[in-house]
Design a protein around this nucleic acid. Structure first.
Lengths: 156, 156
DNA sequence: CTCTGTGCAAACACTTTGCAGCTAA
DNA sequence: TTAGCTGCAAAGTGTTTGCACAGAG
């Protein structure tokens, strides 16, 4: 099996901690912990390729062959609502999800749509500028880059 | 007619300059200057609401009743390709376009999808961090904010 | 005159919704 | 037990494509 899309194996304790905090978050919100939700979240946590719903669906079916794409979709959206994941910003393509909440930024290739993480600490917590926060409630500020990735430059 | 979506009228000379540079850009790329393209670009330039293709379509039909949505779509994408406009970044909704190339940032309401411009000069030209630019060609870097707008907070 | 652009229609991909049966708590 | 969740199917929405005709250069 090709596992190049998997994150470097995180320490088991770290993984367990994330799962536990997910269960807790569900309970707080009155959401049931179902095998489907557990597996979708697990799949997202162990993916480093910012998968679309379709891709998560493919992976989870390895464990739960009867899960439906709708459930995956609903679960991913639920995850972003409760703050356990978020939808990667981008210029109008299919939704891509990210379960990694640690500070990092995204570069997206406009040709192949590949998303590459990068990390520039000063971008981790960009301040909400004066004036904006007065009227609206800012939930997320991020720095986003787009362009052409090395593969696409090579295959040109 | 409700014109609240129109930008504060820009100086005619400024407008003419933008149209002229658009025509020039088309010619450079070997693209024909058609009435449809002219009107789509004009509509985008005078809109301040970051319209979707559908919305631009509605506005242009006031001038060219027979234009098709496809043409509007194709033209908007063409405009972003030649650098006369761009697709507003966001988390997986319909494409929204912006013809204003001057430095500014976007806040998007996750509930009503309204996009609000804001301006924080330090964000205008965020540097491409070391390491990222080495392998990929960065075309655009931007700072993006999302949250809940005042209307949606009020109507909660 | 030639070759690109346009309009139409159909295909497509992705999401969302309604509902009946199922299941975690 | 029961409120909430799932799977299925269908409808909806936005986008893309192929092709014949029209029109800009």
């Amino acid at each position: 099996m090709d596992e190049t899309f998997l994150r470097h194996k995180m320490a088991d304790t770290e993984f367990d901690k994330k799962m536990a905090s997910f269960f807790l978050r569900c309970k707080e919100q009155g959401l049931k912990v179902t095998p489907q939700r557990t597996e979708v979240y697990k799949a997202l946590l162990t993916s480093k390729d910012h998968p679309s719903a379709e891709v998560v669906y493919g992976r989870v079916r390895g464990v739960l062959p009867n899960i439906s794409l709708d459930t995956v979709n609903r679960t991913l959206i639920m995850l972003s609502k409760i703050g356990a994941a978020f939808i990667v910003e981008g210029s109008g393509d299919v939704k891509r999800f990210d379960g990694n909440l640690d500070g990092h930024q995204h570069f997206k290739c406009v040709k192949c749509k590949r998303i590459i993480d990068f990390r520039h600490k000063p971008f981790d917590n960009v301040d909400v500028p004066e004036g904006l926060g007065e009227n609206v409630k800012v939930l997320r500020m991020c720095v986003y880059a787009e362009g052409i990735c090395e593969n696409c430059i090579a295959n040109d």
